[in-house]
Amino acid sequence: TTTITTTNEEDARRIATEWKNKGYTVHVEKRGTTFRIEVR
């Protein structure tokens, strides 16, 4: 599992989409101002 964190919502969406397009399972969680993107 790879975890990526960013405070930028646009980055979070872009990163999540990129990983999904590669065939990975992506889970995005917002904690306060931080977005945690888990890639499996």
Rank of each mutant, 00 (worst) to 15 (best):
N21E: 12
T17H: 10
I15A: 03
N8D: 11
I4Q: 04
T34V: 14
G23K: 02
V26L: 02
N21Q: 11
R40N: 10
N21T: 08
T5R: 06
F35I: 08
T6V: 14
W19D: 00
T5A: 05
H27S: 12
T2C: 08
I4G: 01
A12T: 04
Y24N: 02
H27Q: 09
N21F: 07
E38F: 14
E29Q: 09
E29K: 08
T34S: 10
G23D: 02
R14L: 08
R13W: 15
T3A: 07
V28E: 03
T25F: 12
K22A: 10
R40F: 14
R31E: 14
V28D: 00
R14P: 00
F35R: 01
H27P: 00
T17N: 13
T1E: 08
T5L: 13
T3S: 08
E9Q: 07
R40Q: 12
T25E: 13
I15Q: 04
R13Q: 12
Y24M: 04
R40S: 15
F35P: 00
E38V: 15
R31L: 14
R31T: 14
T3H: 09
T17M: 13
T33V: 11
T25Q: 13
A16N: 02
T1N: 10
I15L: 07
K20W: 08
T33Q: 13
K22S: 05
A16D: 01
I4W: 12
E18Y: 15
R40D: 08
T17L: 14
A12M: 08
V39Y: 04
T25V: 13
T25L: 12
T5V: 14
N21M: 12
R13E: 12
R31F: 14
K20L: 13
V26D: 00
T34G: 09
T3Q: 07
E18A: 10
T17S: 12
E10H: 09
R13G: 07
R14V: 06
G23N: 03
D11T: 10
G23M: 02
V28T: 05
R14D: 05
R40T: 15
K20T: 12
V26K: 00
I15H: 03
H27R: 11
N8I: 07
T2H: 14
R31N: 13
R13T: 11
R40I: 14
W19T: 01
R40A: 11
F35K: 01
E29H: 10
T25I: 14
A12V: 05
T5I: 15
T3P: 04
E18N: 07
R36Y: 15
K20G: 08
W19A: 04
G32E: 06
D11H: 09
W19L: 09
W19M: 07
I4R: 03
T6W: 02
G32S: 04
H27W: 12
T17E: 14
Y24I: 02
E29L: 09
N21R: 11
T17A: 14
N21Y: 06
T7G: 09
A16K: 03
T34L: 14
G23C: 03
G23A: 02
W19F: 10
V28W: 07
E10F: 09
V39D: 00
R13Y: 15
F35D: 01
I15M: 05
G23S: 02
G23F: 02
Y24H: 04
K30D: 05
E38Y: 15
I4C: 03
K30S: 06
A16P: 00
N8V: 08
R14Y: 05
T17I: 12
K22D: 03
T1S: 11
E9W: 14
T25K: 10
R14N: 07
E10D: 12
F35G: 01
N21P: 00
A12P: 00
T7Q: 12
V39S: 02
G32Y: 04
E10S: 09
T1M: 13
K20H: 10
K30R: 11
R13N: 13
I15G: 00
R31H: 14
E18G: 05
T7R: 09
I15T: 04
T33H: 13
H27G: 04
K20Q: 13
E29F: 13
R36P: 01
N21A: 12
V39A: 05
V39G: 02
N21H: 08
Y24G: 02
T33M: 12
W19Y: 11
T1F: 14
T2R: 13
H27N: 11
V39T: 03
V28M: 08
Y24C: 05
K30E: 06
T7E: 14
T2Q: 12
N8H: 06
N8R: 07
E18D: 09
N21G: 07
E10I: 09
E18V: 09
K22R: 12
Y24F: 11
T17F: 10
K20R: 15
T2A: 10
G32N: 05
V26P: 02
G32V: 03
R36F: 15
T25H: 13
T33I: 11
T1A: 11
G32P: 03
T6I: 07
E29I: 13
E38T: 15
K20S: 11
R13A: 10
R14H: 06
N21D: 11
V26G: 00
T25M: 11
V28C: 05
T6F: 05
T25S: 11
T6N: 02
E38K: 08
G32A: 05
A12W: 03
R14A: 09
E38N: 08
H27L: 12
E18T: 07
E29R: 08
Y24A: 04
D11Q: 09
T33C: 08
E9N: 04
T34N: 08
V39H: 01
T17Q: 14
E9A: 11
G23L: 02
R13V: 13
G32L: 04
R13S: 09
I37W: 00
D11S: 07
W19P: 00
T2L: 15
